[in-house]
């Protein structure tokens, strides 16, 4: 109350003070949050005794020892193998997710059909369904298929729009687009698939990119599924290789493990900084719009 009725000069002063306070909070919290990440990157270039010796960032005796030995890993494979393994199932996973999500979302958003409400509700419900209740039967099913220790259980389900979140995201995006252009294309003689390919896909490109980026990040972080499905070390993705590294590497070789953690995070960081607006749009599309 007093803020409103205060004299003009005081308001300006209070405004500047409040801005200063906001910056102080933002910078303080930001530093506190990002410091562990900086520390991790810095530790990759330190000798181990220095990591234990000080919480500072700048290496006193910079060395590539951690990066070189970490990259070699304690196994018969180098870290490159694990990176390539990750991409070997993430790429088909992203592609299949995009294709299936767009097809299904198009069906939900643009077609009138009996039972649509029910299927849509079930799709939203699967977003909230805890994965652990499906985990065991899925494992048994893929074992019957003879798919254990292959990448198939990791990406084949994505061909069937099993991530309801992504379908929902594209449906929300489509709902925000008036179907005028599509109707014009129909009058010009296009069938629905041609309309989808020539008219809808170019328009919903931002949503498609968001889906691809989120699926890429999440798959890179995915740990539990590779953990139960893959058993040969030569097929391990980065996530499993890192877990193995902390179990196998001698307890004091922190710089090796932290250097590999840094490298493991690079693909996500690069993709994020190249395309951050799609992340912000993607994450808010399901909640605020519509």
């Amino acid at each position: 109350m007093s803020l409103i009725s205060a004299p003009r000069r005081d308001v300006a002063w209070i405004g500047r003070f409040s801005a200063l306070l906001r910056y102080a909070v933002l910078i303080g919290v930001g530093l506190l949050m990002l410091y562990p990440l900086f520390w991790m990157v810095a530790a990759s270039f330190k000798p181990n005794h220095e990591i234990f010796g000080s919480a500072g960032l700048w290496p006193q005796e910079p060395t590539m020892d951690g990066v070189v030995k970490g990259w070699r890993t304690g196994t018969e494979y180098s870290f490159a193998t694990y990176l390539l393994n990750s991409f070997a199932f993430i790429m088909p996973k992203v592609l299949l997710t995009v294709v299936s999500s767009v097809l299904v979302a198009y069906g939900f958003a643009r077609f009138r059909m009996p039972g649509k409400q029910l299927w849509f509700a079930l799709m939203v419900a699967t977003i909230l369904l805890p994965k652990s209740v499906l985990l065991i039967p899925q494992y048994l099913m893929f074992r019957e298929f003879g798919w254990l220790d292959t990448y198939l259980p990791l990406y084949v389900p994505c061909a069937f729009a099993t991530d309801g979140f992504f379908v929902f995201m594209v449906v929300q995006f489509l709902r925000g687009i008036p179907p005028d252009m599509e109707e014009a294309a129909v009058i010009d003689g296009c069938n629905s698939l041609q309309v989808l390919w020539h008219v809808v896909v170019p328009v919903i490109m931002p949503a498609i990119i968001s889906v691809a980026l989120f699926q890429f990040m999440w798959s890179l972080n995915d740990f539990l599924y590779p953990l139960i499905y893959l058993s040969s070390v030569g097929k391990y993705p980065v996530a499993l290789a890192l877990k193995m590294a902390i179990d196998v590497t001698e307890a004091t070789a922190w710089n090796q493990v932290l250097a590999m953690s840094t490298i493991a995070l690079l693909p996500s960081l690069i993709v994020f900084f190249l395309a951050q607006k799609y992340f912000v749009e993607g994450i808010t599309s399901g909640s605020v719009k519509g």
Binding site: V104, G107, F111, M113, P114, L129, V133, L134
Partner: peptide, 28 residues
């Protein structure tokens, strides 16, 4: 916008198959 229920179901068919195979069946 389309009233063609057959095409509509064709588009959401991947989801229906996935729902049955990878969600409802394991759930039960």
């Amino acid at each position: 916008m389309y009233d063609n229920r057959v095409s509509g179901y064709l588009y959401i068919a991947p989801f229906l198959i996935g729902l049955a195979t990878f969600t409802l069946f394991p759930f039960l």
